Amino acid sequence: MDPFVVLVLCLSCLLLLSIWRQSSGRGKLPPGPTPLPVIGNILQIDIKDVSKSLTNLSKIYGPVFTLYFGLERMVVLHGYEVVKEALIDLGEEFSGRGHFPLAERANRGFGIVFSNGKRWKEIRRFSLMTLRNFGMGKRSIEDRVQEEARCLVEELRKTKASPCDPTFILGCAPCNVICSIIFQKRFDYKDQQFLNLMEKLNENIRIVSTPWIQICNNFPTIIDYFPGTHNKLLKNLAFMESDILEKVKEHQESMDINNPRDFIDCFLIKMEKEKQNQQSEFTIENLVITAADLLGAGTETTSTTLRYALLLLLKHPEVTAKVQEEIERVIGRNRSPCMQDRGHMPYTDAVVHEVQRYIDLIPTSLPHAVTCDVKFRNYLIPKGTTILTSLTSVLHDNKEFPNPEMFDPRHFLDEGGNFKKSNYFMPFSAGKRICVGEGLARMELFLFLTFILQNFNLKSLIDPKDLDTTPVVNGFASVPPFYQLCFIPV
């Protein structure tokens, strides 16, 4: 058959498939802009700032609406009420993970971030239990974070109060905490193996944040037939998995079943207990991918939040002064901060919360999916439909947070200066898919920041009023603009 005829037939089939998918069930789905064949609503979305586009569309179609990214149908949730109703009140029905062709290629359905069903539930339950087990290797997770915080302070001392970009050092600290939990080992910041790991993690975040990856996920045929950065992403992930597998083999040879040292040991012990169960989800494949998931999810998000926190503290020296006064009063100079201190430091706690609220790190979270046909607000959402959640619409709700575009710790303080919780605080998402490392991340943010401010004054290279804190939105995360500062020993 003539190649031209084959091409026309293929394009015609794709067009018909697109029209059929977009028209099927439209009477039951939430409203939304009319999609174009094949490309859907992509032309109506700013790929570099999806969150802003969703906010604009919500003003037209309401808090629940339908979009098509290519052939992929998505239902968008915008605003606290619908997000709570879906992710919390109907948590089980909305607990699936959205379709990610690239991740599915890399992870093969294993791990904790992109798995679904029984596998996801069992691996998540085990990971939560293990991360909360403060007795691994007779050292609590808090001990590990405190140790890394001391190392971080010593690295900052080496800058000798000269101007520096904190990106690298602030990236090393949370990565080392995860390494300590998974591998029972922290690395020197100049260790070549550690630097290679950091390089792969950072490069992957840069790649994932590009519009090209959005295109690959919406048109998965590209993955096999086109060159691009997605190939580098898959190569980096394969490198990390190979490295983790080597460490798993080392653990198998040296493990003491009665004295687990780290996450890998705990997983291997669980595998041993379930070795007679042919349906067990505790396999080497799941261990390797879960460890890679924890490394990827637990490094860049925390380091970016820390980097943004220091920029905001530079911009608002009056806030920094209040935090340091609270540190001096509650902790002093002669001991290290600990998590028990947080309950006695409402202002510092409010500042950490406000940093996370203000920066809105992951504006749309990772997409969910419905696990069955769901009736939601008089609409029928078919099983498997991807759910896109606007966390921006919750964290920047102007009824809950007056002047949401302003950095103001009073958003989390009552009139008496006591810490005030808010149900709208969802930087880790909400419901059954809430970030498994939430507790660890909150511990790291509090301890790293208090250790830094206990030991250093922060000095800006320019007038604080002239510092730009506008986030650089890159399609996946909101990151701070480049800046330098000086760490002046107190």
Rank of each mutant, 00 (worst) to 15 (best):
T229D: 12
L440A: 04
F407E: 00
F194Y: 08
Y347H: 03
R442V: 10
T130L: 09
D46E: 08
S478T: 15
K160D: 08
L195H: 14
K84Y: 08
N56L: 11
F168V: 13
I47D: 06
K185M: 09
G296M: 11
S422A: 02
F376M: 07
V82K: 01
V330E: 13
K383T: 07
V330D: 02
T290F: 04
G32L: 00
P480L: 06
P211S: 11
L237T: 09
E354K: 01
P37G: 05
H396N: 15
N258A: 11
C435I: 02
R139S: 13
D265V: 01
F376T: 00
D408M: 05
Y225H: 13
F219Y: 14
F226S: 08
D373F: 00
Y80D: 03
V5Q: 07
V370D: 00
S115M: 02
D224G: 10
W120R: 03
L71F: 15
Q214F: 07
Q484P: 05
E122W: 04
A441H: 02
G79S: 07
P211I: 10
Q44R: 10
G298D: 01
S280I: 05
L440N: 02
I205N: 14
E281W: 11
G384P: 00
G98A: 15
T301S: 13
R342G: 06
V479Y: 03
D191Q: 07
L9P: 04
K160A: 12
D89T: 10
K275A: 11
I112V: 12
P227V: 08
G137C: 12
M406K: 10
I178G: 04
T371M: 09
Q356C: 09
E93F: 13
I181C: 14
V113R: 11
Y189H: 07
S127L: 15
L233C: 05
G228F: 07
R21T: 07
L440R: 02
G135H: 12
I123K: 01
N259M: 08
T392P: 03
I205G: 12
I215E: 04
S58P: 01
T304V: 12
C372A: 13
S95D: 05
T304L: 14
E122F: 08
L380S: 10
G109Y: 06
D397N: 07
E72V: 04
